[in-house]
């Protein structure tokens, strides 16, 4: 991969449900068909009960910023032009947590505890296919 290619998901049977939903404008995660546990990170089995059966389930896309950092140093050349950029640990309303970015406000205005709502950024892969990356904007 070219060094300046952004890090993009490699679609597989495991994660395709997440990225298909994202392209359609929905944040979706796996709900275990056996025990009901809503899980993230994406996994082929439930970490609670080890069942392989699940359904991709739409979420509200609402959450709060559990914590965040601002990268002042580019660890990866693909992100050098974005420095300084923020990365937030988002606590989703339905329970799971994910890393993402807070968009739509300057880094200095990001706060722990801030309510946020998912916002999708369309991107094109080197191969020309379309993806949408879930990021989060302040929610009032």
């Amino acid at each position: 991969m070219d060094a300046l290619e952004p890090v993009l998901p490699v679609l597989s049977d495991d994660n395709r449900g997440f990225w298909d939903a994202a392209r359609a404008g929905t944040l979706a995660m796996q709900r275990c068909a056996a025990c009901g546990h809503l899980r993230y990170p994406i996994s082929p089995i439930c970490p609670r009960c080890l069942s392989p059966d699940f359904a991709w389930t739409p979420l509200s896309g609402r959450g709060t910023v559990l914590s965040f950092v601002i990268f002042e140093h580019a660890y990866n050349p693909a992100w050098a032009s974005r420095v300084p950029y923020n990365v937030a640990l988002v606590q989703l309303a339905e329970g799971p947590r994910m890393f993402s970015n807070v968009v739509g406000i300057p880094n200095e205005q990001v706060r722990v505890g801030m309510p946020v709502r998912v916002s999708f950024e369309p991107v094109q892969t080197a191969g020309g296919s379309e993806l949408a990356i879930p990021r989060f904007a302040p929610a009032g």
């Binding site: 994660n15 996994s43 990268f71 660890y75 990866n76 950029y85 970015n101």
Partner: peptide, 16 residues
Amino acid sequence: DSAAGGSDSWGIWGMF
């Protein structure tokens, strides 16, 4: 400088 993450790298969001 590596990115953690399971099926999807945290690097998608710049977390390195």
